[in-house]
């Protein structure tokens, strides 16, 4: 048992933040996710790794029901957020998505000002009573995303006029502006250079503990650096799930080992 850089899981005796049980996802007749079960803990970063097309994004998008927006997609099984089934009829997706935020692979700031980008979620969910409140939320979110110092003098400028790395941090700031409980990140650094990537990884590390985070990544080092739990997917099934340190040093499955050591993928 190796303990290289991952801190020991904190408070792992608490109930998990989100749980997935027996999840199947179909696109039309084609099954993209096969019977996957997994727990996501509130104080940890969970990484999904696996070769391209194995269903990581599909599975991730089950956690905030973004698959609802794909007409052909159908989800079976049970996913719970704090003991409530998010696919139950009584679940309101608007509220679910306020609690489970998402950051996409390609930075997608709205073509609005930096300020308006952050204020977007709080406005929709009515989180600010007045302008002062909103200013506070915007500043707080930008600070937590480590972007405040860079943009505080140009909040009125367009969010699309920033560098890729800044845009991605803006999207993270936008996601945390509604104070979610879980943040889903789908390859958040794949469009960024190494320096911008390092900043995002730092940011993820800072956010850990405040939000449960699930991150999809193709970058083994990144998974090893930022996550405490890792799930390895292959052809729609979850092959192995466990402490990141274990997965990366002593995987129990041959396929995991092959993938991590770069023998295929």
């Amino acid at each position: 048992m190796n303990t290289n850089n991952a801190p020991p899981p904190v408070g792992s005796n608490q109930p998990p933040k989100m749980t997935a049980r027996g999840v199947n996802v179909f696109y039309g007749a084609k099954q993209a996710i096969k019977n996957v079960s997994l727990d996501v803990r509130a104080d940890e970063v969970t990484a999904f790794i696996g070769p391209s097309g194995c269903g990581k994004s599909t599975f991730l998008r089950c956690f905030n029901r973004m698959n609802d927006t794909v007409d052909s997609a159908r989800v079976e099984g049970e996913i719970k957020l704090d003991e409530t089934d998010i696919y139950a009829a009584s679940m309101d997706v608007v509220q679910l998505r306020a609690r489970v935020g998402m950051v996409f692979q390609k930075p997608n700031p709205f073509p609005k000002s930096i300020y308006e980008n952050i204020a977007y979620g709080p406005r929709i969910h009515g989180l600010a009573a007045n302008k002062t409140d909103m200013d506070g939320i915007v500043e707080g979110s930008l600070r937590r995303a480590g972007l405040w110092e860079e943009v505080k003098d140009r909040l009125g400028e367009s969010g699309t006029a920033m560098s890729g790395g800044q845009q991605q941090r803006l999207c993270i700031a936008r996601a945390i502006a509604v104070d979610p409980e879980v943040i889903l990140m789908d390859e958040p650094c794949s469009a960024l250079d190494p320096i911008a990537t390092a900043r995002i990884e730092e940011l993820i590390d800072d956010l850990r503990g405040k939000y449960a985070i699930i991150i999809v990544t193709h970058n083994m080092q990144q998974a090893a650096r930022v996550s405490q739990k890792t799930a390895f997917f292959h052809l729609g099934t979850m092959v192995e799930y466990g402490d990141t340190s274990t997965i990366f040093t002593n995987p129990s499955e041959g396929r995991t080992k092959d993938y991590i050591t770069g023998r295929y993928g």
């Binding site: 905030n64 973004m66 927006t69 997706v93 608007v94 509220q95 679910l96 998505r97 306020a98 935020g101 998402m102 996409f104 390609k106 997608n108 700031p109 709205f110 073509p111 977007y120 979620g121 929709i124 969910h125 999207c171 936008r174 996601a175 509604v178």
Partner: peptide, 12 residues
């Protein structure tokens, strides 16, 4: 991605 971004924020 704009639409997805907005829907993922919980917008209708």
């Amino acid at each position: 991605s704009m639409r997805d971004g907005s829907l993922a924020m919980g917008a209708t």
